[in-house]
Nucleic acid binder design. Structure first.
Length: 103
DNA sequence: AGCTTGACTACCG
DNA sequence: CCGGTAGCCAAGC
C-alpha cells in the first residue's frame, strides 16, 4: 500500500477526501461545492469533477451551488431527493441559511 | 507546452 | 431576478 513513487497528493486521494466530506453531510442538511472544497483543500471545480465521475456512492444530492441552486444535469433529480430528505426547497432553491452545512 | 471544457463563485449592470 | 464577464483550477486532447 505504500507508494513511495507518489510523493504528492494522488488524484484518487483527493476524490476520496471529497466523497468522505460529502458523506459526512448529515441528513436534512445541504452543503456547497466551495464548502466541501475548502474542507478537503481543493477548488470547487475539483469537487464537481469528483462527483460527476463517481458520486454514485455518496449523497451527492446534498451538494448544491453557492447560491442554493442545483447543478443543471441533475437539478430536477436533486431537488426531488432533497425534498424527500426533508430539506425545505423553495422554488428550486435551497435555503443555505437554514440547512447549510457546515454551519 | 498550449487550447478547450466544465455538476463553480463573485461581481456588475 | 437575470444575463454577461472575470477569475480560478484541474482534466483531457
Amino acid at each position: 500500500m505504500s507508494d513511495p513513487s507518489a510523493g504528492r497528493t494522488d488524484p484518487g486521494d483527493v476524490d476520496e477526501a471529497v466523497y468522505d466530506a460529502v458523506d459526512a453531510v448529515p441528513p436534512g442538511r445541504v452543503s456547497t461545492y466551495g464548502a466541501i472544497g475548502r474542507l478537503v483543500g481543493v477548488g470547487p471545480r475539483r469537487v464537481a469533477r469528483a462527483l460527476s465521475r463517481g458520486g454514485g456512492a455518496v449523497p451527492w444530492y446534498r451538494v448544491v451551488r453557492a447560491d442554493g441552486t442545483a447543478a443543471e444535469p441533475v437539478r430536477a433529480r436533486q431537488l426531488e431527493l432533497l425534498a424527500g430528505e426533508g430539506v425545505p426547497v423553495r422554488n428550486g432553491r435551497v435555503d443555505l441559511r437554514a440547512v447549510g452545512w457546515p454551519d
